[in-house]
Amino acid sequence: MAETARLRLKTRAFTALVVLSNVLGNFSLTWGLRRVGGLLGFSPIAYVEAMFNPWVALGVSLLILWLLSHMALLSWADLSYVLPVTSMGYALAAVVGRVFLHEQISWTRWAGILFIMLGVWLVARTAPRSTPQLRPESAQS
């Protein structure tokens, strides 16, 4: 019982970290890229130059944090659990786009946000892990 509660708490904390780092990372990246003036070609130099913009650098750092926290979450939770619960980021991204970037959100998009929140609430009620825990590679000689 205590093990289940521990796993649930740990999963919720990491889900929050995955969602927030993704939404804030994408927002920061968009904000920075708009100031850089866009990437016109596929030249790697243009991408490297864009990294010197503080907003782009912050966005990239947050997306690295997103990748690492997502990997950690997948080390114990099902992919079919992680996908829906972290999709809350799509709803938050739309709200961030509306509030800070002044993008238009139609009523169908608001309905989409409501559906996503309801789906996330349902999936979050299921056990994060349904497959047996494998023996860690680090414990194998």
């Binding site: 079919s80 799509y90 739309a94 559906f115 309801l118 996330v120 999936v123 497959t131």
Partner: peptide
Amino acid sequence: LKEQIGWVRWTGAWLVACGVALLF
């Protein structure tokens, strides 16, 4: 990956899929 997906998770997953489609 052979994950066990019960009806609650499937329902939630479909709601999220529909929500994402509505965002389009």
